[in-house]
């Protein structure tokens, strides 16, 4: 048994796992720091040594790019190409063997990479735009997480969502894009849409901006949505409702806006909690089921929003650290 020092542990974990962007940057900053340079180098060299020396068709296209850059003629004869193909074939045979005899670190590393899941989460108080390997973009709202296999896009395009996200999907009819949430799965037929499925809310909604999507509940009921249609699924009553909405209102959060069209106060408060990373405590006198239509379009601050709620909904608020106490006026 060899005791690993924290330096090699950090490097090994970092190379093996994905972390959120902030965490990865923190590790990177630590990595380039001059402290513990010898230990860091030792671990990095072990990683370097674990990587195989093989080429793929993509390597050849990189080679011609570099040769072009360096002004070298691309003068490979056909004979040498076929030789190289042969060499590639040999490399393909040798590779599994190298895997079997390679070091523990290499095996572990490759194995976990192959089955790896990429997970991206956004904490409360933030939202983030990410690009998937197929060039589809996803805006993740505050307090949301998206997971997908590292092999995403090779055979299928599936993501798992907890929370809220707005998807803009790259067209690829051969590989349907499927968003899975706890209660609802949404299959995309090339398009832009918003899915909201926070684990602490019983309602899951899918709203279509452009194109066409097919939403299927876990109980097997399927609905095809047209633009500006919204599907609500309530997990408590297992009921589905379709509504005609202005879809832009429901993806407004990705531009920093908060738009509520006739939504219960409880839903509005949850959205504010996530956006500003605060926690509301409501007294019994406050009716969280009452519906309001509110628009905050100019990146209003928390206190500005609270002032508007004070007047429109007749709420008094008191703030202690991150807890906000609400009472009826």
């Amino acid at each position: 048994m060899k005791k690993q020092n924290p330096v090699s542990k950090i490097i090994e974990r970092y190379l093996r796992n994905r972390y959120n962007q902030e965490m990865e940057e923190k590790v990177q900053r630590w990595l380039i720091d001059k402290n513990r340079e010898a230990e860091k180098n030792q671990s990095l060299e072990a990683y370097w040594n674990s990587l195989p020396e093989t080429a793929s068709p993509a390597t050849h296209s990189s080679l011609s790019q570099v040769k072009k850059r360096l002004g070298m003629a691309n003068s490979v004869s056909t004979e040498r190409i076929s030789m190289r193909r042969q060499w590639l074939r040999i490399a393909a045979v040798i590779f599994p063997f190298v895997l079997l005899t390679g070091s523990y670190f290499l095996m572990k590393n490759l194995d976990e990479k192959r089955n790896a899941t990429v997970s991206i989460s956004v904490p409360y108080g933030e939202s983030r735009k990410i690009t998937l390997p197929d060039a589809s973009t996803v805006f993740l709202n505050a307090g949301s997480e998206i997971r997908y296999a590292a092999s995403f896009g090779k055979t299928a395009r599936g993501v798992k969502l907890s929370g809220e996200a707005c998807f803009s999907v790259a067209k690829d009819p051969a590989k349907p894009f499927i968003v899975e949430t706890k209660h609802l799965s949404v299959e995309v037929l090339g398009t832009e849409f918003n899915v909201k499925a926070y684990p602490d809310e019983t309602e899951t909604t899918a709203t279509l901006n452009r194109g066409r999507i097919k939403a299927t509940t876990k109980t097997g009921r399927a609905y095809t949505l047209r633009p500006n249609q919204q599907l609500h699924y309530d997990s408590r009553s297992n009921s589905v409702a379709l509504a005609q909405v202005n879809a832009g209102d429901f993806s407004a959060w990705k531009d920093g806006r908060l738009v509520f069209a006739g939504q219960p106060l409880g839903t509005i408060l949850s959205a504010i909690e996530r956006k500003f990373d605060v926690a509301f405590q409501t007294g019994k006198t406050l009716d969280v089921g009452e519906r309001y239509s509110l628009k905050f379009l100019h990146n209003e601050s928390f206190s500005e929003i609270m002032r508007i709620l004070e007047t429109t909904a007749g709420i008094d608020y008191r703030m202690e650290n991150k807890t906000v106490w609400l009472t009826k006026k």
Partner: peptide
Amino acid sequence: EHRAFEAVFLCYFDKVKRFIAGLIR
């Protein structure tokens, strides 16, 4: 010799790329 550069490139390019990708993500 261009030929030697090609041989070195084909042997090491993927390794270099994967190493760098692992660090910079």
